[in-house]
């Protein structure tokens, strides 16, 4: 087991180890604690919520509290977006269940944490449902997703569903304050404010930003300047550039950059679209209405991306819509 001081990423170092350490999410924690008292009664769990709201943390806490120090042996962490197809998921679950069978006795079941499960297609989810059924004697699933609506009904009805709401400002500042205190760094209020605003309710992002900002200061004081530097450094510059080219009606250049993002960084169509969606709201020369209109277009193409055969065509089509928008806007002015 790694000692806390050896952990270099703060997100891991300060990840709560037990449910008691989880300060927010009171209602979720209380019901889960009840399950832990009589582990046999715990159903499959479905955690839904935006990134960085504590879903994985809670899942890991449960595993730790069920299995103690040997929790890693009895927990299989899978990530739907990393696995190639449901067949491989099925194989890994089967192997895992077989491998741990010998160790049963004082353990009621093993735990399978399936992260980003809403990334799975409907067919894959149907197959997953079957896996959940056939292995329900030996396994408990903890499914983690952003949107529970993207999980098929039969799976939802087999799970206790917990919704994780976004952390509010005060909680976020409190967390950041706690961590900087432990790290002997003083976090100035306006710096904390800037991190909170940047992280959009994602605590993981916020902590990563805090750690990076503190690496930037020699004086152990994180000020707003350091935070802004982090934001500048970590912002997806290529995506912004691509967006600006498209809005400036230079489609060919924008598409070239899109291929660069896909080629060099291996970003998928939905990765890029998500980034584009985030960045569109930061484009300074657009009005709120215009941003809303573009966000609508993004939504349409995000939908087609799921249905279509070709990421590059859908993304290029989106960039072409931006070029068209830019051109019409220019003509209107």
């Amino acid at each position: 087991m790694e000692q806390p001081e050896n952990i270099s990423m703060w997100v891991e170092k300060y990840r709560p180890k037990t449910l008691d350490e989880v300060v927010d999410l009171k209602s979720v924690v209380e019901s889960l604690k009840a399950f832990l008292k009589t582990p046999k009664t715990m159903p499959h769990l479905l955690f839904a919520g935006m990134p960085g709201t504590g879903k994985t943390t809670i899942a890991l806490c449960i595993a730790r509290q069920l299995f103690g120090s040997s929790w890693r042996t009895f927990t299989l962490e899978l990530n739907a977006s990393d696995e190639r197809g449901i067949k491989i998921v099925r194989e890994r679950i089967k192997d895992f269940a077989r491998y741990t069978r010998g160790a049963f006795g004082n353990i009621p079941y093993v735990i399978i944490i399936l992260d980003e499960s809403d990334q799975m297609t409907r067919q894959a989810q149907t197959a997953l449902r079957r896996i959940m059924e056939t292995s329900s004697n030996t396994c408990r699933f903890m499914l983690i997703c952003n949107y529970s609506s993207k999980i098929i009904e039969p799976i939802q009805s087999r799970c206790a569903v917990f919704r994780f709401s976004m952390l509010d400002k005060e909680n976020m500042v409190e967390h950041l304050g706690y961590i900087s205190g432990k790290e002997n760094v003083s976090l100035l209020p306006d710096a904390a404010e800037a991190i909170v605003e940047y992280s959009e309710g994602d605590l993981r992002r916020a902590i990563n930003a805090l750690q990076t900002a503190s690496a930037y200061t020699k004086t152990k004081t994180v000020d707003k300047k350091a935070v802004l530097r982090v934001i500048g450094e970590a912002s997806p510059k290529k995506v912004q550039l691509m967006l600006n080219k498209a809005l400036g009606s230079d489609f060919v250049e924008a598409r070239r950059m899109m291929y660069e993002l896909m080629g060099q960084y291996g970003l998928s169509g939905s990765d890029i679209i998500r980034q584009v969606h985030r960045e569109i709201f930061k484009v300074s020369h657009l009005t709120t209405e215009e941003k809303a209109e573009l966000a609508n277009i993004i939504g349409e193409y995000d939908f087609r991306l799921v249905e279509g055969a070709n990421d590059d065509i859908q993304l290029s089509a989106l960039l072409a819509q931006f070029s068209k928008f830019g051109k019409l806007r220019e003509a209107g002015n």
Partner: peptide
Amino acid sequence: RCHVSRRSAKLDFVPFIKAILKE
């Protein structure tokens, strides 16, 4: 290490880790 997908590692961790190591 951080219990996230490769994709999330790429988008949410790599830029920060790189920035810390640079500094």
